[in-house]
Amino acid sequence: MLIATLRTSSRLALLAAVFALGAVLQARGILPAMATYRQDVVYLIRGHLWLAAVSGLLAILIGVPIGILLTRSRFRLAGLVLAQVVNLGTTIPTLAILALAMTVLGLGAPSAIFGLTALTLLPIVLNTAAGLRAVPRHLVEAARGMGMTPGQILWQVELPNALYVILAGIRTALAIDVGTVPLAFLIGGGGLGELIFTGIDLMEPAMLLAGAIPTALLAIAVDWLVGQAQFWLVPRGVNPLR
């Protein structure tokens, strides 16, 4: 009830803000100027989404298994080392990661994807591990005592019970990912960063906004999508949203 009310009111607030922004931009004549970049925007969004999707997917495919490994008792030592490595990886600023990737992989999409993936990895790994660690020990023990194999315990008990937290990590990670893709332009990766950084260089606010606004909207859309996944995929018995 309360949540529903909050949701509607925040949606209204967002609409109002967008409307106000539109009005201001229109008054300054920026909106019509932005419209001239339409074709660029459509083209660049595709590249942008492609970068985000590939790096996001890679981060999930690598991050979730690492998170799982971190919590296996067999790999405790390896887990601790890995956790340190991942932690270290994120103390390095994003730009530095991209620059480093470029020195190894050269200019272009591969280094952009590498950098973005590395960046997106951390919240996924950390949340997967945290979610799995938060599954009560006695549930795992009950499962073992009833004759589940380790694989069955992972799939039937641990992952479903940790799924909400894991998806929360993916949600944050992908929002960061989409929001960081513009930096990829700096190492020749493409995406909406082209408009943003060129706009800054040319002191052309319309161009800058033509890149920045879609970037923001994409981040919001991705967040919403993963939110939906969280709502529908997590079993009702362990889903705080339902």
Binding site: P136, H138, E141, A142, M146, N161, G237
Partner: peptide, 14 residues
Amino acid sequence: GYVIQQIGLFPNKT
């Protein structure tokens, strides 16, 4: 058959 003190029903299952 095994029953533990904390009951241990799996919250994700009906």
